[in-house]
Computed example of a mutant assay.
Amino acid sequence: MTSTINPQTALIYVMVTMAAVDASMSDKELRKIGNITAALPAFDEFSQEKLLPVAQECAAILQEEDGLATVLGLAKEALSPNMRETAYAMAADVAVADLKVGAEEQRLLEIIRNTLGVDRLVAVAIERGAQARHQTA
């Protein structure tokens, strides 16, 4: 069985979902998504010109009934188990990009963790690492 989206698209879907959870995507969150897709090995074969169309596609799905479940289901289907932890890490980085993690973002991290099957202890370590990377002096 083949997935309907590729792994890079799935990773972007997870990040866009996190950025959109509080009904406003901050510039810092959008920059973080752009930086992640430009720098990490998971996106070596990804054309940056596709980022905006993929993000818009995700936003359109999220507007549909059961959009969140659809987006996360597509992501789970497209990602291997080890890449699901990578997706969670990217979501955590986007969540802390604007230096505040609200209740909506915490709840979405929990939903992503449960949907993707990321171990709770692994998730806590990932979240703590994201917080440490985004501290200011």
Rank of each mutant, 00 (worst) to 15 (best):
L52A: 12
M83P: 03
G67P: 08
R31P: 06
K32T: 12
M90A: 02
A60P: 10
F43I: 11
L72N: 03
A91T: 00
P41A: 13
G34T: 00
S24F: 05
L74A: 08
P41R: 13
G67E: 06
E85S: 15
A23G: 03
A39H: 12
E29V: 06
D44I: 11
A78K: 01
S24E: 08
E49H: 00
P41M: 10
A38T: 09
M83V: 11
L40V: 12
G73N: 13
L74T: 06
A75K: 02
A69C: 08
E65C: 04
L30A: 13
A39W: 08
A42M: 12
N35M: 08
A23V: 13
S24G: 00
G73D: 09
A92M: 03
I36N: 01
L51W: 04
Q48C: 03
D44H: 14
F43N: 04
N35A: 10
E77S: 10
A69F: 09
A38S: 13
A42I: 11
L62T: 08
E85T: 13
A87C: 11
S26I: 04
L40W: 15
I33S: 00
E57N: 15
R31D: 13
K76R: 14
I36C: 03
I61E: 04
S26R: 03
Y88L: 10
G67F: 07
A38F: 13
L72D: 01
E65K: 15
L52H: 07
E65F: 09
A91C: 03
N82I: 13
N82S: 15
F43H: 08
D27E: 08
E29T: 05
E85V: 10
S80P: 08
K50L: 05
I61C: 03
K76S: 09
A89T: 05
I36Y: 01
Q56S: 07
K28N: 09
A39T: 15
L62A: 12
E65I: 08
A42C: 11
G73T: 08
L51Q: 04
A78C: 00
V54A: 04
T86Y: 07
L68R: 08
E64H: 07
A39R: 14
F46Y: 15
I36W: 00
S80E: 15
Q48D: 06
A75Q: 05
A23W: 13
L72Q: 02
I61N: 02
A87V: 09
C58R: 00
M83S: 15
L68E: 05
L51G: 03
R84P: 02
V71Q: 02
G34Y: 00
L72A: 01
L79A: 07
I36R: 03
M90C: 06
I36V: 04
E49S: 06
T86N: 05
V71K: 01
M90L: 13
A23Q: 12
R31Q: 14
L72W: 07
K50V: 02
E57W: 05
M25D: 01
L74I: 09
E57S: 08
T37R: 05
L30D: 03
L68H: 06
R84G: 03
A89F: 03
V71M: 05
L68T: 07
M90K: 00
A60E: 14
Q63M: 09
A60Y: 12
P53H: 04
V54M: 04
E77K: 06
L74Q: 14
L79N: 01
L62D: 09
T37M: 06
K50G: 02
I61W: 07
A91N: 01
N82E: 15
D44T: 14
A59F: 10
A89V: 01
